[in-house]
Deep mutational scan, measured.
Amino acid sequence: YQDQEQRILKFLEELGEGKATTAHDLSGKLGTPKKEINRVLYSLAKKGKLQKEAGTPPLWKIAVS
């Protein structure tokens, strides 16, 4: 689980600052079920590491501290 968090954070960091992506996109790029990706995304957002942008589907990006 920790491993997934690292992979997602790394992927988003590599996208570049301010760039956002969807759970669907992450799921495809990382070869992980979207349900699992979503769980990790919401967990990271709760920890303040990610920012969720409203929309359908929601967009995710690295939180700027």
Rank of each mutant, 00 (worst) to 15 (best):
G28L: 15
Y1K: 13
V40E: 03
E53K: 15
T56P: 08
S27R: 03
S65V: 15
L9Y: 07
I37H: 01
P58E: 08
D3F: 14
T22W: 00
G16W: 01
L59D: 02
K34S: 09
P57F: 02
R39E: 08
G55K: 05
E53A: 03
Q4L: 15
K46Q: 10
L30A: 03
D3H: 14
A45L: 15
E5M: 03
T56C: 15
P57H: 03
S27P: 00
V64M: 06
N38S: 05
T22Q: 01
K35E: 09
Q51N: 13
W60D: 02
E5W: 02
D3I: 08
Q51Y: 12
L44A: 02
D25C: 10
G55Q: 05
G48S: 02
E14D: 14
I37W: 00
K47N: 10
R7N: 08
E53Q: 15
E14V: 09
K52G: 02
G31Y: 06
V40I: 15
T22L: 01
V64D: 10
A45D: 07
K10Q: 12
I37P: 00
N38E: 11
K29C: 11
L12R: 00
L41A: 01
I8H: 00
Y1L: 09
G31E: 15
I8W: 00
W60E: 02
L59P: 03
K35R: 14
R39C: 08
K52Q: 09
E36D: 12
L26K: 00
K46M: 10
K46V: 07
H24Q: 06
K47H: 07
K34R: 14
D25A: 13
T21L: 13
E17D: 11
K10W: 06
E13K: 11
S65W: 07
E5I: 03
A63I: 07
K47S: 11
N38D: 11
R39T: 11
D25N: 14
G18A: 06
L50K: 00
L26N: 00
Q2L: 12
T21M: 15
A63G: 10
H24P: 03
L15W: 08
K35F: 05
A45P: 00
K49D: 05
L59G: 09
E36S: 12
Q2S: 11
Q51S: 13
V64F: 08
W60N: 01
L9R: 02
K35V: 07
E53Y: 07
T32V: 14
Y1W: 06
K10M: 07
L30I: 09
K61D: 01
K61S: 13
K47V: 10
E53M: 14
A54M: 11
V40C: 15
K47R: 14
I62Q: 04
Y1V: 11
E13F: 09
A23K: 01
K34C: 09
E5P: 03
L30K: 00
Q2V: 05
G28P: 04
A63Q: 12
G28Y: 12
V40R: 11
K29F: 10
W60M: 00
L26F: 01
V64E: 15
R39Q: 13
Q4I: 15
G18N: 10
Q6M: 09
K34I: 12
Q4P: 10
K49F: 09
I62F: 06
E5T: 05
K35D: 08
G16K: 04
L59A: 10
P58G: 06
K47W: 02
A63C: 11
L44C: 03
I62Y: 04
K10C: 08
G48P: 00
A23Q: 02
W60Y: 06
P57R: 04
P57Y: 03
K47P: 00
E36N: 07
L15N: 04
T56K: 15
A20W: 10
V40L: 15
Q51L: 13
L50R: 00
D3M: 14
G28D: 10
L44W: 01
V64S: 13
L41I: 04
G16R: 02
N38M: 10
N38Y: 09
K49I: 15
S65I: 03
E13G: 13
L26Q: 00
K61L: 02
S65N: 08
P58K: 04
N38I: 02
K52C: 07
I8G: 00
L59Q: 09
L59M: 13
R39K: 08
G31L: 11
I37L: 09
N38K: 14
L26S: 00
R7E: 09
Y1P: 05
G28M: 10
G18M: 05
L41G: 01
E14T: 10
N38A: 03
N38R: 13
G16N: 03
A23D: 03
